[in-house]
C-alpha cells in the first residue's frame, strides 16, 4: 500500500505540470471547477497515475472524485486493494 502523503506529493507534481503552475494547489482544490481540467486532461492524469503507482483505476471511481483529496483517497484505496 502506498502512503497518503507520498501519493499527495506525486499528485501535486502531476497537477502542477498539467496546469503549468497557474494555481496554488491544495487538498481541497477542485479538479474541474478550480483547476479547470477537462475530461481529456483528467483521463491523461489517471493514465499517468496508473503507470506511476502500478495500479488500475476504473473510470467509474472518478464520478466520486471532485477534489485532490478525493483522488488521493481513491488511489490509496486502490493500492491497498491491489497490494
Amino acid at each position: 500500500m502506498i502512503e497518503y502523503q507520498s501519493i499527495l506529493n506525486d499528485i501535486y507534481a502531476g497537477l502542477t505540470e498539467i496546469t503549468k503552475g497557474r494555481f496554488d494547489i491544495n487538498e481541497q482544490s477542485q479538479l474541474i471547477e478550480q483547476l479547470n481540467l477537462d475530461s481529456l486532461q483528467i483521463m491523461g492524469l489517471i493514465l499517468d497515475i496508473e503507470d506511476h503507482f502500478d495500479i488500475s483505476i476504473p473510470v467509474n471511481v472518478l464520478k466520486d472524485v471532485k477534489t485532490v483529496k478525493d483522488l488521493v483517497i481513491q488511489i490509496e484505496k486502490l493500492s491497498r486493494d491491489e497490494g
Binding site: 483521463m43 489517471i46 493514465l47 496508473e50 503507470d51 502500478d54 495500479i55 488500475s56 483505476i57 476504473p58 473510470v59 467509474n60 491491489e82
Partner: peptide, 30 residues
C-alpha cells in the same frame, strides 16, 4: 463505447492509445 460501459455499470479502464505494452501491463495486473 464509454457511454455503453457507463450504462452497464461495468468496471471500465483505459489503456494508452495503441500502446500494446500498456495493454499487456493492465491485463497482467488484472
Amino acid at each position: 463505447i464509454y457511454d455503453g460501459c457507463r450504462l452497464g455499470g461495468t468496471k471500465t479502464m483505459r489503456f494508452r492509445h495503441n500502446d500494446i505494452d500498456n495493454l499487456a501491463k493492465r491485463m497482467e495486473r488484472l
